[in-house]
């Protein structure tokens, strides 16, 4: 997250003590759980580990997870870009309120993010009876899982894009306009390239959170194996069935996704940082 330009000191005095302390803490809090996932997944050998990819329920869970992310992430990306364009490039009243609204989901418990959709679309929800008559199923089905995931991740891309667009101002866009470019051209050829790294950064985070979402999806899914179970829910189900190797094998897939996300993210920060600072 930080592209450090300052000359770093060799550790002296308190330095080594602080470094040791920091590394010990990180190893305990972050390293140990990650190592546990890997160790448990491989505890019964590779055959037990790869067994997970042969179970239809697990494959269905992987597929559903990908489908949910494939719907939620592009929608949230479109939202982030639209919000960035209108909030950062224009002046209007109520902007602070809109920004607060966009930030709000970050401070909501994932379980509440699931709950609210049940209150709206559940069997006894506001629109439950109408949906029942129409034969549309939202809760305990794909649409509900998608809605919960979107609500949990809606702020992530917008928060990456809005501050950057605001910092860049709108002079480049105005320059493009006076040179005869239309609105869509200005967006595509000037605005979008200027925020592409932030967009990608946001998409990475959003995707990781969407694929790993548990609390909201847990409330909305109905836990039907092979049908409405995403990969994180499948991990829970296997764990509760005392299939620890299976649970940790599935978990290590998700952990792998998280690690890949982090690697891509820090690579992106190194690529994107130099030009965005000029």
């Amino acid at each position: 997250m930080t592209a450090s330009t300052r000359a770093l000191r060799r550790a002296t005095g308190f330095g080594p003590v602080l470094i040791a302390l920091a590394l010990f803490w990180l190893a305990l809090i972050i390293g140990a759980p990650l190592a546990t996932v890997v160790a448990e997944a491989w505890s019964k050998g590779s055959e037990a580990f790869f067994n997970i990819f042969k179970q239809p329920d697990a494959l269905a869970a992987i597929r559903l997870t990908i489908i949910v992310a494939a719907i939620a992430v592009p929608l949230n990306a479109a939202f982030g870009l639209a919000a960035g364009w209108s909030i950062a490039k224009f002046e209007f009243r109520g902007k602070a309120l809109l920004l607060a609204l966009i930030d709000l989901p970050l401070s909501i418990s994932p379980v509440i993010s699931g709950l609210v959709w049940v209150l709206v679309f559940g069997a006894r929800g506001w629109f439950g009876p109408i949906l029942d008559v129409a034969g549309v199923k939202i809760i305990f089905a794909l649409p509900g899982i998608v809605l919960g995931t979107i609500l949990v991740t809606v702020s992530l891309i917008a928060r990456e894009i809005i501050p950057l667009m605001a910092e860049q101002g709108s002079d480049e866009e105005l320059a493009a306009t006076t040179l005869g470019a239309g609105g869509w051209t200005v967006f595509r050829r000037v605005t979008l390239p200027n925020v592409r790294w932030a967009l990608l950064h946001g998409v990475l985070l959003c995707n990781a959170r969407a694929m790993g979402e548990f609390g909201a999806v847990s409330v909305l899914s109905g836990h039907i194996r092979g049908l409405t179970e995403t990969l994180p829910l499948h991990v829970e189900a296997l764990y509760n069935d005392y299939d620890f190797v299976g649970a940790f094998a599935a978990a290590s897939l998700l952990a792998g996704l998280a690690v890949v996300t982090l690697i891509a993210k820090s690579a992106l920060e190194r690529v994107g940082a130099p030009r965005s600072t000029t």
């Binding site: 985070l205 994180p232 982090l262």
Partner: peptide
């Protein structure tokens, strides 16, 4: 590497952290 690892709780699905902690 350590700097990147700090973000792991952001990216690691909570269920994964949950079963890992329970086991650990």
């Amino acid at each position: 590497v350590v700097d990147a690892l700090v973000d792991l709780p952001f990216a690691l699905p909570t269920a994964v952290a949950g079963i890992a902690l329970a086991t650990l």
